[in-house]
Simulated assay, not measured.
Amino acid sequence: MPGEMSIEHRYASGYAALVGRLLDDTRHGWSIGTFGAVGEFVRDDDEPATRTITASAQCLYTARAAIRINLDVEPRMLAYDTLSGDGESWGHSLAFCLPVPDRARRGVIQSLGHDTDAVRDEDRDVAIFDLGAGIGHVRFCLRTRDARLIDTLLALQNQDVFGPHGGALMADVLRAQPHRVLISPAGRIEVFAAIPPPDGESPEGPHTHLLPQLIQSGRTHDANAPIPRGFQPVLMFNPRSPWRDALGRRVPFEPELDADFRKLLDRHGVPGEARIRAGVEAAVASGIRPDAFAWPTTRRGRAVARLTLRRIAQRSPGDLVAAWRAHHDHAEEE
């Protein structure tokens, strides 16, 4: 079954094979966006889906969303995990990165004509507008047949989406319920699911976030992501955490999910982090006291060391690793 397949890639057939294996696995999700402007693609294991493969792209769509991953652009892949603030768990990520373009900044509302590059045939004659909320390589767009919303967006061309007319525009967006389309050189994600009201919760499944305060920070990504300076993520593969179910609820640790991700981490991890992981594991295995170990001096290095201790605690719990965690790993975030 697709939902049971390992996300391990044997590296015999290159980028297209990796993309295909990851797209086939329903346990995990994808996203495209910048800090505060994001579209997410996920699907249920039993959800009907259409899959298309060409030499230049792989696509998958359901009744709720669509994704295309371009194969003629091969970004730099970077696998990493991040601490959770509960003192025990962690999450996984695989970022597909490209160099940040010159003069990367937010844009303004612009008509892009018809969305001739849409994943589904029936969407290719529909009007699409760039909201100017993305940064660098990423565009956050609206696609709609609604005449009133089209007129509103045409009247607001070359204006900031968060300018004086932004509130009225967002009210019209909620009324018209357009598709949201996130575009980057690596591909696109299209979300057809409904936009919740301002006081509502994001729906389960595919959805988007458009958060003005975060967008106006001008960041391409969250500061906790160890993306190399000068790069930005243009596509994210979001493996399910071994501590969370598909709805984000806490579950007992699933070692198979973590073992799957470790294969990606070993192949595409941040340079230097493998040395930190190996050093902590060797020290604990040798019985070294936690206060005798040269703890990393950088914020990210300390996070990697703490993550390693948490993994060891799940694999080989005992008094020594408990002492290490008491000394070095704390529930509160730095």
Rank of each mutant, 00 (worst) to 15 (best):
Arg229Tyr: 10
Gly166Asp: 01
Ala285Val: 00
Ala168Glu: 06
Ala55Thr: 15
Met170His: 15
Phe253Ser: 04
Gln110Asp: 03
Asp72Leu: 02
Arg219Gly: 15
Gly107Thr: 09
Arg310Ser: 02
Arg311Gly: 09
Ser93Gln: 04
Glu40Asn: 14
Gly3Met: 02
Glu40Gly: 14
Pro239Gln: 13
Glu332Ile: 07
Val191Ala: 10
Ala171Asn: 13
Ile189Tyr: 00
Leu214Phe: 01
Asn238Asp: 11
Glu334Trp: 08
Pro296Trp: 05
Arg145Trp: 11
Ala104His: 02
Ile183His: 06
Glu256Phe: 01
Ala323Glu: 12
Thr308Leu: 07
Trp243Asn: 08
Gly279Glu: 10
Met1Pro: 05
Val181Glu: 01
Gly166Ala: 04
Ala223Lys: 11
Gly218His: 04
Leu265His: 14
Pro99Lys: 05
Asp160His: 01
Tyr11Ala: 15
Glu204Ile: 03
Ser31Gly: 15
Pro255Tyr: 10
Thr144Lys: 13
Val119Gln: 10
Pro242Lys: 04
Asp44Tyr: 13
Arg244His: 12
Asp160Phe: 03
Phe140Gln: 10
Leu235Val: 00
Arg180Asp: 09
Leu210Ser: 11
Gly134Ser: 11
Asp222Arg: 09
Glu273Ile: 00
Val119Ala: 15
Pro197Asp: 10
Asp115Ala: 14
Gly20Cys: 01
Phe140Asp: 10
Gly85Ala: 09
Thr82His: 03
Lys263Ser: 07
Arg106Thr: 07
Val42Lys: 12
His9Gly: 10
Arg289Phe: 14
Asp72Asn: 14
Gln110Asn: 12
Gly205Val: 01
Thr34Trp: 06
Leu98Gln: 03
Asp102Leu: 01
Thr220Asn: 07
Arg267Tyr: 09
Tyr11Gln: 13
Thr50Met: 11
Pro203Val: 04
Ala17Arg: 06
Gln216Asp: 14
Ala16Val: 03
His328Pro: 08
Phe35Trp: 04
